[in-house]
Each structure stands twice: as structure tokens, then as C-alpha cells.
């Protein structure tokens, strides 16, 4: 049974279709990446998931039952547009938001103290929010999102505005939360973080899902059977022979040796290529090219766009 399910969600705004029969199924304890270009409908989907807006049609299930409004008041939600009361003191504000999530005052202040120390911002407890830098405000926002240890977390672009050190800190915390048993949805443009964190992804483009599944399977799906070869020797010999068994994608001369990227045709084995290589010169390295999430993202979106244009 999936932890959270969305079935054929449709949402229309006055002049455009924001979501067109989008479905997803989030396994318990996973980190689910919600990807897509700007304006694809990610934030709309997130708002529908946490019940800020209602879908025109489709159903949402939380732990196997139809989603109720109350279910979402205990989750942790970090919206894309961050915001805090500017004139309010940091500590007071964090306490207020934690209490709104149902924590008792004493409990809330103990937990907040721990978090503030961990993020090294405990000296700012009595400062007003407007006196803080943007990065510091982001930290506070992250803390108030997770302080009540929710079982379900939604992060919309959690790393925007953070430096690499703090991004790393945040990633570690997100992984820790997952270990403690939280299920996490997280939307981002940062493909590197997707590879580090996500178990599952859903790629939305132009209000439709175009790619979905566990990260490994998605990778396999886009596995192009490509190899990167570095060798010193007669590159011409290699390029001239056996063109029916592989295709050369890239051919570059680097530091006195040749770097090639080739794609094997069906039925060709790596050993076939290697035997040719051995005749042509000295092999320095021979690696399988694993498609990065970045490549997959770009390819999937471009394919979908050309398909749309044909229609």
C-alpha cells in the first residue's frame, strides 16, 4: 500500500490547464523527487497534495484512505516562497509556528533550542527576522518545518538560496529525517541533489507526467548503451572499421590521446569493440556512460516537446 496516492488529478485555472490527469504513488519512507521545468505545474500539485487548493477532479489517498483536510495540518511543508513575520522576534515566531503544528510550548522550546544550536543560530533567538540575512531566514524556515517531526514532509525547492556548505548540512538532515521514518516529497531543479537523495521521481512537463518511477528504473530506461573510451593510437583505423556495430557520438583529441564516446548497436558486445581497440592502439580506459539525471531530464523534456509540436 502506498503511503500517499494521487489519481488522475485535473486542475484548471481560468485560462489554462495546470494539471492534466497527473497520478503518482509515493511509497512509505521514500524520498520522492518532483521534477519539471518552470511552470510545469509542480507547485500546483504540491498545493493540491497539502490541501491548500482543491483539484477539479481526481482523488487523493493518504495511508489508503481518502485524504481529509485534518491530515495535512500535521505535515511539514516548506513552500517555495519563503516567508516569516518580519517584525516578530525569531524565537517567538518559531515557537508560535511550532505550537500551530500542535506542539506544547515547553516541548517546542526544547526542540527549537536543539535545532538552533545545531544550525548555529542560537544567538539570534531574540533578534527580529528583518535583521537576519536571507540564508539565516531560510534556516529558520527549515527548522520550523521539521521541528514537530512530521511523518510526511513536503519541500518545495529546499536548497534555493543556500551556499554549498549549508546545502550539504540540509541534505544530511533530510537523509536523517528519512532514516527516522519520514516520507518526503521534494521538488527541485537541482539534478545533482536528486541523484543524491531521491528514490523515486516524477517528471512533469507542461501539466502532464512524462516520466515516473524508481530512480534506478528510470536510469535503465534511458540507458543508451554508450561507452567512453580513452586510448592512444590510430584513431582513424578505429573510426573506419566496424561502423555497422557501433556509432561514434563524440571524437576528441585530448592530451595526446583520443577520447571517444560510442553507442553500441544491438547485438554488439563490449568485447567486440575491445578486440578492435586492442589492435588499434593502447587502451587507457573503457567506461560505461551512465546517464545523469540532468541528461535524462533534458532528453525527456525535449522528446515530450517535439511530440507535442507534431500533434
Amino acid at each position: 500500500m502506498a503511503f500517499f496516492e494521487a489519481n488522475k488529478i485535473v486542475k484548471n485555472f481560468s485560462n489554462h490547464l495546470a494539471l492534466d490527469e497527473v497520478s503518482m504513488s509515493i511509497p512509505k519512507g521514500s524520498i520522492y523527487g518532483l521534477l519539471g521545468p518552470n511552470g510545469a505545474g509542480k507547485t500546483t500539485l504540491i498545493r493540491i497534495i497539502n490541501q491548500i487548493t482543491a483539484p477539479d477532479s481526481g482523488e487523493l489517498k493518504y495511508k489508503g484512505k481518502a485524504l481529509k483536510a485534518e491530515d495535512m495540518y500535521s505535515i511539514g511543508y516548506l513552500p517555495e516562497e519563503r516567508g516569516l513575520y518580519k517584525k516578530m522576534k525569531v524565537g517567538e515566531q518559531a515557537l508560535y509556528l511550532a505550537q500551530l503544528k500542535g506542539l506544547k510550548k515547553k516541548d517546542a522550546s526544547e526542540r527549537l533550542n536543539k535545532w538552533f544550536k545545531k544550525f548555529e543560530i542560537d544567538a539570534w533567538w531574540d533578534k527580529k527576522v528583518e535583521e537576519l540575512s536571507k540564508g539565516m531566514q531560510q534556516k529558520i524556515q527549515f527548522i520550523v518545518t521539521v521541528v514537530h517531526e512530521p511523518k510526511f514532509l513536503i519541500f518545495d525547492e529546499p536548497f534555493s538560496g543556500f551556499d554549498p556548505i549549508n546545502t550539504n548540512l540540509l541534505k544530511q538532515e533530510i537523509l536523517k529525517l528519512q532514516k527516522k521514518g519520514a516520507t518526503i516529497i521534494f521538488s527541485t531543479h537541482d539534478m545533482a541533489s536528486v541523484e543524491e537523495l531521491c528514490d523515486h521521481i516524477s517528471l512533469i512537463n507542461d501539466s502532464r507526467t512524462i516520466l515516473q518511477g524508481p530512480v534506478d528504473e528510470v536510469r535503465k530506461q534511458y540507458d543508451s548503451n554508450r561507452y567512453e573510451i580513452k586510448f592512444a593510437g590510430e584513431a582513424n583505423l578505429l573510426t573506419a572499421s566496424l561502423t555497422h556495430s557501433y556509432r561514434i557520438i563524440e571524437n576528441q583529441a585530448v592530451n595526446g590521446h583520443t577520447k571517444l564516446i560510442i553507442e553500441l548497436m544491438k547485438g554488439t558486445e563490449t568485447n567486440d569493440v575491445l578486440s578492435i581497440l586492442l589492435q588499434a592502439g593502447k587502451v587507457i580506459s573503457f567506461n560505461k556512460v551512465v546517464p545523469s539525471m540532468n541528461d535524462i531530464f533534458i532528453r525527456a523534456v525535449e522528446e515530450a516537446n517535439t511530440k507535442n509540436k507534431k500533434k
Partner: peptide, 12 residues
């Protein structure tokens, strides 16, 4: 301030 979205995920 955009805090409203945070609030709306906790209260009606």
C-alpha cells in the same frame, strides 16, 4: 511576507 502559505498548511 508569503508566510500565509506556511500558516495555511497548519490552520484553516
Amino acid at each position: 511576507n508569503r508566510i500565509v502559505e506556511v500558516l495555511i498548511s497548519s490552520v484553516k
